[in-house]
């Protein structure tokens, strides 16, 4: 995976086990707390990353344990990026269905398939690539233009 040299990055690796995904959530939430994001935005970013990791486990690995899911988190001056990598089955497309169901039609309410929609609604960019034997989903969240720089950036550039 490629990472901008100016960014501060950390790689998280978990087994393809849904029981482990909360660890990614806790780490992402802590990392986001160093970015100029509101509490709701931090929740939604954590949610998007969790949805991506869940998808990798459920769909790329078919819920089979014993595989690695990697999450590269990069804190840039103007954005956070998350690259979720797996070496399982590729997705055909990353186009999310619209949430245009009828709220009064009980049977039509969606119980699944909302993950990609959430990612595309919350994040500013959602990109999916096959790199060699790996699938990489990249999620980017830009900061508001008038926001303070991330704490880590401020510390290294007094």
């Amino acid at each position: 995976m490629t990472h901008a040299k100016s960014a501060k990055s950390i790689k998280l690796v978990i087994d393809s086990n849904l029981e482990m995904v909360f660890l990614v959530g806790l780490a992402v939430k802590a990392l986001c707390s160093h970015a100029p994001l509101s509490e709701v935005a931090v929740y939604q970013v954590e949610l998007s990353v969790i949805e991506a990791v869940n998808n990798a486990i459920k769909h790329a690995y078919g819920n089979e344990k014993g595989h690695e899911v990697e999450i590269w988190v990069s804190l840039h001056v103007d954005r956070l990026t998350f690259q979720i990598g797996d070496s399982g089955r590729s997705m055909n497309e990353i186009h999310a269905p619209a949430m245009d169901y009828d709220p009064g039609d009980l049977e039509a309410l969606p119980e699944s398939g909302m993950g990609l929609y959430i990612m595309q609604s919350v994040m500013d960019r959602v990109e999916y690539h096959r790199r060699g034997e790996r699938n990489v989903l990249t999620l980017s969240k830009f900061f508001e233009k008038n926001s303070e720089p991330p704490l880590a950036e401020a510390r290294s550039n007094p």
């Binding site: 969790i50 869940n54 009980l106 309410l109 969606p110 119980e111 699944s112 909302m114 993950g115």
Partner: peptide, 18 residues
């Protein structure tokens, strides 16, 4: 924290209640 799977479970409750 609730993800889309958790939300789906709550939707499922609603459908079961009918």
């Amino acid at each position: 924290f609730i993800d889309s799977s958790g939300l789906g479970a709550i939707v499922s409750m609603l459908k079961t209640l009918g």
